[in-house]
Nucleic acid binder design. Sequence first.
DNA 1: CTGAAAGCGCTAACAC
DNA 2: GTGTTAGCGCTTTCAG
Lengths: 353, 353
Amino acid sequence: MARVTIVQVAERAGVSTASASRALNGLIASAETVEKVMQAARELGYVADATAQSLKRGKTLQLGYAVADIGNPVYVEIMSAIERVVQASGYRLIISSTGTASSSVDVVRDLSRGLVDGMILSPLRVTDDLIAALEAAPIPFVVLGRVPDSAGFDAVRADSSTAMRLVVEHLAAEGRRSLAFLNGPADTTPGALRLEGFRAAVAMHADVRSRLAEAADFTITAGYEAAMPLLTAADRPDAIVAANDLIGLGVLRAAEDLGLSVPSDVAVTGIDDTELAAVVRPGLTSVDLGADARGAAAAEMLLARIADPSRPAHVLTVTPSLVVRGSTVPQRPVALGSAALATPTDEEERTAG
Amino acid sequence: MARVTIVQVAERAGVSTASASRALNGLIASAETVEKVMQAARELGYVADATAQSLKRGKTLQLGYAVADIGNPVYVEIMSAIERVVQASGYRLIISSTGTASSSVDVVRDLSRGLVDGMILSPLRVTDDLIAALEAAPIPFVVLGRVPDSAGFDAVRADSSTAMRLVVEHLAAEGRRSLAFLNGPADTTPGALRLEGFRAAVAMHADVRSRLAEAADFTITAGYEAAMPLLTAADRPDAIVAANDLIGLGVLRAAEDLGLSVPSDVAVTGIDDTELAAVVRPGLTSVDLGADARGAAAAEMLLARIADPSRPAHVLTVTPSLVVRGSTVPQRPVALGSAALATPTDEEERTAG
DNA sequence: CTGAAAGCGCTAACAC
DNA sequence: GTGTTAGCGCTTTCAG
């Protein structure tokens, strides 16, 4: 438990701390010195103090990912992609969960205090406070999500309008004529964009009626509760478009509890195409927003900016694709084989945006 | 993007850096000084450099959670509990995902280099290397899981043997006589312990036959693939005990693809009682290993040790409870109401260990 | 190739 | 109450 410093290593090796440092870091030093220092370090169990190193070097070799709602599997997927890219370039990734309620502002301020060299964030709400904090941040960051163009930030976005269009077109093609959009909180960025996308998509179908509802949260439970009134209404919609997979799952459970059958009584769709959508029965038709691609792109963007701070701001939009499952189209008998679980195949059609 | 230091703040305020520091940290200083310093700091957008602060203070006010497999929802649940406790005591939590393959050794070494004041870890494998790294670590840590008693570490454990006993007793009581235990990798700590627990539990039932199988991973896909041969065997078991919920879900999907009905043809159980178990149909009977309680306890233990390093090592074992759902007992018609989704109620029986 | 010394940004004694 | 100074542990000029 006792901290051993480079001074002790140097003493034991009978050299100066400068030589010890050089030997430890693989800089020029005689073979003999390296030998002595390494052995001393080993015997003492020396590990360089990261705090001191960072202070001296002016960088931490750490990157941060601030995520609002780690309970949502889609963020775990994004995180894994980020981690893959980040690790490959010698950085360490630290995750900071900001909690779904509180704003990310504190996290941005906190982590940019010298703990990380750059960060990626998936904010649920992009407030003025957050923008201000980002502008004032002494380190580069990449935003996963929509952010005002004027700000000139690096960003990676999903394409909500195409996503919603894919869903609405699919449902209309399946003969659905009364759609309900079950959003998450509309004051969140994804909520606002998906709502906008839904409205635009529905406007293109004159024969399709629509209504709006809002769940308290992007969770299964909130989806369940918000679905109940929709499903028990006298003029029940024949399709419910959920703003994400978790809400969609809640709708599925609510329909079941009400004895409604999916998709014959009501079709249901989600967004994000998480593993949950594939595992549940009936499978949840969903739109893959390219979580993996977005995470990887964000990480690469951040690394590129760190390498070249004067680089112009980039904004990348990832194209979504529709994955059709049993919640909108009556299920065909499933072919045997594990592939069905992994990636969409025979039983699942995929339509790019 | 430019770093502003306390020197600049002090200059602008016309005071010494010491006074600036005192004012900023709320130590004794005249009202006038505080005023001037605060304003200068605000104007400059000053944020204290955490690296320098940590170096000077000898502590970071950060705690770490190293988790092998963040893709498993049970770890997300544990993480949330840890975060709750940690935040309440003024520390910040950083998560480090070690990846399911690589050992946690690197993470332990990395984070204990001065980045955090203490850490909690959920290792998948407790190797000698890991033990050695922990013993050499200059900071306190708490292990979530089984660790050799001799080591004298702080630890919080689930009770695998009781968990397996609950499952086996339940299945036996339901008339199942041919059990298969579908483990995850047996060279992991949870794998080894659950296997041991299953063996012991089954030994208490002379009339129950059993067999063993192993999935390549604690995932849905691995569970699916490993379940196939079990379910297509000539002497198909009448119950499959999965080592965790994800594997159990894979079994459910495999049974479905084979046209087997659950629970009449085969009963299935999981472990961890994640939200997935409640959401899938039929609901997956599972054992709640107390993820939330374990996470919270680990965090409290860590804080206690930081407060008092000489405190004797504590080991806490959390009692599991069985949650019965449709995968083992034919489903009764479900009562209306969202409660069904949240906590086990009418439709779900809960049996403490 | 090596050692002495400076200094990263901050806080904490210590005098005043 | 305030300024001066030392120093956290490390890396990195700069002489030698």
